[in-house]
Write a protein that binds this DNA or RNA. Structure first.
Lengths: 101, 101
DNA sequence: TATAAACGCAACTAATTAGTTGCGCAAGTT
DNA sequence: AACTTGCGCAACTAATTAGTTGCGTTTATA
């Protein structure tokens, strides 16, 4: 089962969940209230986000708070870096990219 | 059919194709040579990349050269921006993000 | 003009994903 | 002790995706 950060953010619901969790830690029920989807559907997305470690959890009584983990997002940023040069810079792009690979 | 840039980069083969095309425009056959996959399988990926405009094509005789379009990658970068603050900055992060949304 | 190369497109299959329903368990409440 | 709430987990279905095979068209080559 492929389960990396790129797979995680492919789904719009999961991107929305990440945006929510970036603001504050939340329980599955609280998250689900923001969507049309059922709690279980949301829970499945959370599970995927947890598996690829972009989200961590912390239990408090019977509630489980999910936290956003910015660390994993860096991976996307790092991958983007090679392309960023193509829209940032003017010319000597190719050399830079070739150096990276 | 969901066909956005996030969907496009979810597949590792497509990410590899984008990396190749960022270096130089290539024909489907040339691209396929870099992978285990068949030409048709690669062609399908290219089609998806074309649909979400992260790749453009230009015909020369019987060959079709596919070019990387950095513009579309900006969308990812822009989306990442809100999270970037969480790993770049130290404190006053929440305020910044709340301001964005 | 016959043949080969470079493709796109359509039909099909296999695998994966998103979502639903129903269950069970642990932690609080009455 | 009985009931409710918050949750995970498993089985199932429907939709989507990745990949294959085969065919037709256009451009080049012998």
């Amino acid at each position: 089962m492929r389960r990396d950060i790129f797979q995680a953010i492919a789904d719009p619901t999961r991107r929305a969940i990440l945006s929510l969790l970036a603001l504050q830690a939340m329980t599955p029920n609280a998250i689900a209230e923001h969507f049309e989807s059922s709690r279980q559907a949301v829970s499945k997305h959370i599970q995927i986000l947890t598996e690829c470690e972009v989200v961590k959890h912390q239990q408090t009584g019977r509630e489980i708070y999910y936290h956003f983990n910015p660390e994993k997002m860096k991976e996307i940023d790092i991958w983007l870096d090679r392309f960023r040069k193509l829209w940032d810079d003017r010319f000597d792009q190719l050399d830079d990219i070739l150096k990276d690979l």
